[in-house]
Design a protein around this nucleic acid. Structure first.
Lengths: 203, 203
DNA sequence: GTTTGGTTTAACCAAGTGGTCAAAATTACA
DNA sequence: TGTAATTTTGACCACTTGGTTAAACCAAAC
């Protein structure tokens, strides 16, 4: 009955695809069953309800997005180094899962209480990060900045192009694939420049 | 039968609320009717189908978001001035309609072809904007920048905090209203500093 | 071979879903 | 005032939804 079964795994893969693509309200249990190549009853045998199945998917998807953020916040590196690593890793993850940001943001808007309860366990510790920034400002190694704006700026610059991708592809790039690819491949450097220039003191 | 009727208006108001809050798939015609204080049949009398009603709402919502972007792109001002004005106006609009960004980005991901067809009419001209940037770079009044990254950076920094608001409120601000308010009231200055510092040549 | 346990299936169900329709209520108009 | 046109309603419908159930399947244990 567990998800270590091959059937269980194929269900999770199918459910992930459908849920992420269509959202909870747009997803149909029948469609997930079809995608997994099984009977709809079998879905309810493995995961008692749609909510149940969805929660499994969402928790996995969200932890994927935030796993390396934890690393960023708690590691023992200099701030500028941390930030560069984070931007690299974060954009790699999002490129591999381009629909995740839109999925997570939509579901969290649709039902904040429930979704936030699901997230509760995965404790992000921002206080450590804030302390480090304060220290480095006192050191004089970076300009004074507000830690909250800083982290939100980084997340925004990384994630927004994925959240709004269909819109940007058309409005900004006129659906020209070459321009889209060029933008994507320059994005890491662009974000790092913007963020780091604003922090670095010398040069 | 038109939407200038008081009934028609109350339907639009109710539909806007429900659609923006729950998305197309999550919205129920019955709920919209209840919200408008009318019979469900009357909904179909005014707007033949759910799709029809949704399209009216979406087009209006989207044009609201982009109306001042047009102004930015075509007006006869210096780039830096334009950008500052845009950030001010854009954040004002989003503050007045905080759920709009998540709504628009979700629907555009859910059904890009249809939604982009709805937008087709409202022609945004980015070529003018690009030309101006190239000119000012040649003038020497700003550093060389990629116009596409620039405009996406601005949109990202403005819109993302709204798209991800429930998440940020909890994870970054610990649901402390005072911190949320402080962040919001500083946001314009923060974004302008970040963008302008990166463009301006003489301090 | 039969029993036992988990797995898979087809048939089915109650509660919605968007949508229709004819009749009633209201308004416009002569 | 009487009548035509418009607006509003309640009853209704076909269809889809998530979910249930009992029977069939199937491998391993005895």
């Amino acid at each position: 009955m567990s998800t270590e079964n091959s059937t269980g795994k194929s269900i999770l893969i199918a459910a992930r695809k459908i849920f992420v693509l269509k959202g909870f309200d747009g997803a149909r249990m029948q469609e997930i069953a079809d995608e997994a190549g099984i009977n709809k009853s079998l879905l309810h045998y493995y995961f008692r309800s749609k909510e149940n199945l969805f929660e499994s998917i969402f928790v996995e998807a969200f932890s994927q997005v935030q796993s390396n953020m934890l690393e960023l916040l708690t590691s023992e590196r200099f701030l500028l180094e941390k930030i560069e690593m984070f931007i690299d890793q974060y954009l790699d993850i999002l490129s591999a899962n381009p629909y995740l940001p839109a999925f997570v943001t939509h579901e969290i808007n649709r039902n904040p209480e429930k979704i936030l309860a699901l997230i509760r366990g995965t404790g992000l510790r921002f206080d450590l990060f804030n302390t480090q920034i304060d220290q480095e400002i006192e050191n004089g190694s970076i300009w004074p900045v507000n830690p909250q704006h800083l982290i939100i700026n980084i997340m925004a610059l990384c994630a927004f192009p994925f959240v709004a991708k269909p819109l940007l592809d058309k409005l900004i790039f006129g659906n020209v694939q070459q321009q889209i690819d060029e933008f994507t491949s320059n994005r890491k450097v662009e974000i790092k420049n913007l963020i780091i220039r604003n922090l670095k003191k010398q040069l």
